[in-house]
Amino acid sequence: MRRKSSVAFDEFVRVHGDSLIRLAYVLCGDRGRAEDATQEALTRLYLRWGRIEDPLPYARRSVVNATNDHWRRSGRREQRERLAAQQRPDLPVPVDDQIVDRDRLVQALRRLPHGQRAVIVLRYWHQLPEPEIARILGNSVGTVKSQASRALGRLRDELRSDLMPVNPREYR
């Protein structure tokens, strides 16, 4: 019985592993942390394997929580430093406009609070329906809707402010 469940678990990881680690990566922005978070999520999943009817939402929820755990553990100071580092431009080099735009979008997403970021990623990247997102995040559908709306508004604001001239003093 255990062998069969191991095979099913392996198959689950084979099919959904990349999608889960990519979810972790876009939520936390760090490959190492994404690997850790995914590994933790898979471990939690395996501990409950066979007792969960639909493992994918559970795995997604674990990934979201694990990335949030990492975020919390990393401490506010480190967060500020990391965000500052992410916002600090390197020496100007000629790059593709499309890459710059995508980078701005991704950075803006990462500046959102974790909950809003998760809603945006699950709703618009994974294209999950709101009730399923609510189930994954343990929220109500109303909360998901309002978070999505707030997050989109904030993303637009962030992008607008990105277009404003930079104050060089911020980067000294």
Partner: peptide
């Protein structure tokens, strides 16, 4: 980004 080989086994 891809899930590392052996992730299922480690889990």
């Amino acid at each position: 980004v891809r899930v590392p080989a052996g992730a299922a086994g480690r889990a």
